[in-house]
């Protein structure tokens, strides 16, 4: 956070190279967040650009009260969600999804080898597709938590959701993915 503060001050003092450095430091987070929400590379690229231009315009409003990544993440999340809502893409899972996921585990043979499955490109691709099919909020939260390795509190600040809701979404998303994996393994068996 110290380096971010130095860079922010440099940008505010008129150093354009410092802005490029800030972008480099946070573009991965913004990309993952925006791409997970919109799931379209071209749209995601344009939105990432919009996010950083907004960051540049509003930089004076950053009060150094939270981590800079949280502030940038919040802008990225807001812009991406607004885009999705404007395009009227579904944000929440269809009703009944949770009930389905509460069913007892599918009867899949327990002869499961982690390393073999992990090396199986087909299984991993299936899981990747299953992640893309999660509800928007859930797939964004699992990305922030597992890929960006942000803490629950920081994710809650970015998404403006209570900590408990974030945890609940994470739990349900992982459970859903495991169920999908089991279905896939059942098909393969």
């Amino acid at each position: 956070m110290g380096e971010d503060q130095t860079l922010v001050r440099a940008v505010l003092a008129g150093d354009s190279k410092a802005f490029a450095q800030l972008v480099e430091r946070h573009q991965r987070l913004v990309w993952h967040l925006v791409y997970r929400v919109v799931q379209h590379p071209e749209d995601a690229r344009e939105l990432c650009q919009e996010v950083f231009l907004r960051v540049h315009r509003c930089l004076r409003q950053y009060r150094f009260e939270s981590a800079f990544s949280t502030w940038v993440g919040r802008i990225a999340y807001t812009i991406a969600m607004r885009f999705v809502q404007k395009k009227r893409l579904p944000v929440e899972a269809p009703k009944g999804d949770d009930e389905e996921s509460n069913e007892p585990l599918a009867a899949v043979a327990d002869g499961f080898d982690l390393e073999t499955a992990c090396a199986d490109a087909e299984v991993m691709a299936h899981l990747g597709a299953a992640i893309s099919c999660l509800p928007t909020v859930q797939r964004t939260l699992v990305t922030l938590y597992h890929l960006e390795e942000l803490g629950i509190a920081e994710i809650a600040q970015i998404t403006d959701l209570p900590d408990g809701t974030v945890k609940s979404h994470l739990f349900r998303a992982r459970k859903q993915l495991k169920r999908q994996l089991e279905e896939r393994l059942g098909e393969l068996a």
């Binding site: 991993m124 899981l127 890929l147 992982r174 495991k178």
Partner: peptide
């Protein structure tokens, strides 16, 4: 395995 997929 799910966690590994999520970290891709």
């Amino acid at each position: 395995l799910v966690l590994r997929a999520l970290r891709q």
